[in-house]
Write a protein that binds this DNA or RNA. Structure first.
Lengths: 204, 204
DNA sequence: TCACCTTTGTTGTCATTGACAGCATTGTTG
DNA sequence: CAACAATGCTGTCAATGACAACAAAGGTGA
């Protein structure tokens, strides 16, 4: 174990991000202090600046790892899901909601950073990648004839809004707890009704 | 005009909230400083503490005014809306989305505060009041036979999620701009499909 | 091997901030 | 008009983010 006696930490950048996320989770975003992070990692108070120009830069990077992990979870969940649109949507919903509840503060960070006019390009790209991944689900469903036709943005926006809204509400503890657990099935059913093909008698 | 020569400001508390919201809107939440607020209002750096024990207390109060205004806008919008569920839902959606885009950072504050385990009771109450107001729309629709039956939480949760998600996404600039403007109608249509009665042939 | 350069940490410093304590002024009420 | 409460002020402190100047480690090429 590197007993912190070494001048060079080894991977301070990663360590900072990890510890920062713990702090974020445990004590909220306002309690996150660069100096405290440094202390926790046994490093001088200015060391973090070598890896993050700014406190904001650290937060950006943190949000970025959030999107990466969200993408990852989502992909994994979809990989295991069946082929039908219903199954895939349910898998996606579960992945998103699970992530949101397990990383409430992080999710908040991921989206609140967008308010900043000069948000890092990487971050915006990551966010859009994530959005597109979800919208792809819809396109897929359309190809299978299980989702009504129409431009992707129009059809997908409702679905994406619903998923995001539910996840956000769950994360911010704004849902009655009993609903949250078992409500996913109902939510998916609602989504499916919302984007079902115009002529209901398409699928067997 | 009170030229700030007076020892007592008159209504420092309200002034602080007003100015705080401006700063929040213009420079984001991290830039909000009690001392700067005090300076702006021509008041000593410790004066705000007479009205807000804490920075957090100010933020809580700010979020509270947000919920109040949101309720207000929503009520006003509904008062002018027609009777049908479709019309009322559309009015609600427009009110929420308008509020969200016009007060993006504030909305963020309103919901992010919930993460705090010891969020003020008032704030939680306000949030729940707002949720209930929206859910009432659903109940109303059910009474009119324009919304499928079932426990309110189950039926309403999807609708509320969709509204909240769309508003949040719009506020955080995560929607393609062209979609945002004209997409409300489509969104409402999607919502209506999602909560339509099981037997479509109910209404003439 | 060793001189050089780059990366990564370190120490020192500064202005700003939030919080608190103690005092001053004003307004109110009996 | 004399308490007294409400509101504001000055002073101070520790913590913080940012920056500058310096130091150690880790290559890299002659």
């Amino acid at each position: 174990m590197h007993t912190r006696r070494r001048y060079h930490h080894g991977d301070l950048r990663a360590a900072l991000l990890t510890r920062a996320e713990e702090t974020l989770r445990e004590k909220g975003p306002t309690a996150l202090s660069l100096r405290e992070l440094a202390r926790d990692l046994g490093v001088s108070h200015a060391a973090p600046s070598r890896h993050f120009k700014d406190k904001q830069a650290l937060l950006d990077a943190l949000a970025l790892t959030g999107f990466d992990r969200l993408d990852e979870r989502m992909s994994a969940s979809l990989k295991e899901a069946g082929e039908s649109f219903a199954e895939r949507m349910k898998a996606a919903a579960r992945a998103y909601v699970d992530f949101a509840t397990a990383n409430a503060e992080l999710l908040d960070l991921m989206y609140s950073i967008k308010h900043d006019p000069k948000a890092s390009e990487e971050l915006i790209a990551a966010s859009q990648r994530w959005t597109r991944q979800t919208l792809n689900l819809i396109a897929e469903g359309q190809r299978r004839g299980e989702v009504r036709e129409g431009p992707l943005e129009r059809v997908g926006i409702g679905v994406f809004s619903t998923l995001h809204g539910y996840a956000t509400l769950a994360a911010s503890d704004s849902l009655p707890p009993d609903v949250r657990a078992e409500g996913l099935d109902e939510l998916v059913a609602y989504i499916l009704r919302g984007c079902a093909p115009e002529k209901p008698r398409q699928t067997a």
